[in-house]
Nucleic acid binder design. Sequence first.
DNA 1: CCAAAAGTGTTGTACCTACACCCATGG
DNA 2: CCATGGGTGTAGGTACAACACTTTTGG
Lengths: 234, 234
Amino acid sequence: MIEYSSQPHYLVAVDCIVFGFEEGRLKLLLVKRGLEPEINKWSLIGGFVGPEESTDDAALRVLKKNTGLEGVYLEQLKVYGKPDRDPVERTLSVAYFALIDIQKYSKQLNADYQAEWFLINESPQLIFDHNAMVADARQRLRYKAALHPILFELLPKKFTLPQLQLLFEEVNDMKIDTGNFNRKINSTGLLIKLDEKDKSSSKKGAFYFRLNHKKYQSASHLILNLIPGSKLDL
Amino acid sequence: MIEYSSQPHYLVAVDCIVFGFEEGRLKLLLVKRGLEPEINKWSLIGGFVGPEESTDDAALRVLKKNTGLEGVYLEQLKVYGKPDRDPVERTLSVAYFALIDIQKYSKQLNADYQAEWFLINESPQLIFDHNAMVADARQRLRYKAALHPILFELLPKKFTLPQLQLLFEEVNDMKIDTGNFNRKINSTGLLIKLDEKDKSSSKKGAFYFRLNHKKYQSASHLILNLIPGSKLDL
DNA sequence: CCAAAAGTGTTGTACCTACACCCATGG
DNA sequence: CCATGGGTGTAGGTACAACACTTTTGG
């Protein structure tokens, strides 16, 4: 039997930066940590990687356990591997970011786990290096969303153009011209206009749209150019 | 003393996808693996992460040991975390990709480690999931290079525009119009024209250029638009 | 009828592609 | 003097930013 003799072994965790979008604001899902150290402090959703699961599997499991959701958009962000990032024992963390439809979430088991949504700019101090993870994830989200139509993952099945524009403005932290935005979005062919209108925020009402899923699948690598002088950085 | 009781611990390795560019072709640095299993098969350069170093540090160490080079461009690619990716024992691998000036490399200790350059499209079968890592790294390189001027890291201090164009063509696997390419490159202000010419590949000779380092630093997030209808994908 | 949000039209400009063209020089 | 690779110029088209404009409807 071959073995790697005396190489050191470490704990491996996953942590998920979970983004949501509600009432025109970008939000972040946090939980109160359930174990020492730093018990009861706010933390990203996370857990240790089990012996029979991949890190991807572990992230999915953790996500399902805390939100009840499956089939959400999940992407590996990066590894945080400083030796002393966890004071108890060396633990590597593989960070993932998830985009979820916050409406779907609230229909699921809400109270079971004491998870809570925070406005992203008003979230509390987090444990360890979790604040850095969130900052990195926001940057990555901006970057990725500039090139790929992933932000739809944050919206309910039916949504309006003003809603979508607000989302883009939140993520990129800038105002966008409505005319140009609508024209570009429509030219992608990704949206299908419904007959129904949302009158909750104006008298005229804004038409609902839904995703053209066929187009969305095949165009997941499409390059949007929705953000004018975009200041990407990665 | 707090501890995370009985959570499982794993080995953690780093593997480096090292790119080079020579004679107009993109190359990959590989080594013959020095330990069982799969001893003497071709492999990425890699090693286990030591107890006192971060994964980034480990990658730098491994790179220095195998190429003698320091201060090279190095970026985390992603973690490969399937439970059975190493048949001996569960080992997570944090993959990094590096861009090195192959000229500098050959000046360093060349024969000490039995590393060898392969044309990227003619590289041998690699151990474990290393082939997948290379494929992912190529894609990431293309993606990143479309937005950031990182490809200069692959060139020597002095280089010509035709050389640079070849590099872009290799990385993106497409022909690029010379006129448009030159104009765009020049408009970035990233290059400084030297008086000297390289006459090795034509009678007229091509002017050498060097990087404007100040501009390069401050514009590391610059968005190049050098690849026409680019087919990015990540 | 008016305020306020939704959505459309228009126009000048910047940039980009394609391709024709000139340049330098070793043999 | 000509073949070859290096490098520049230019015309036509596209797409975009900016902003003025029309539409709808509840109060």
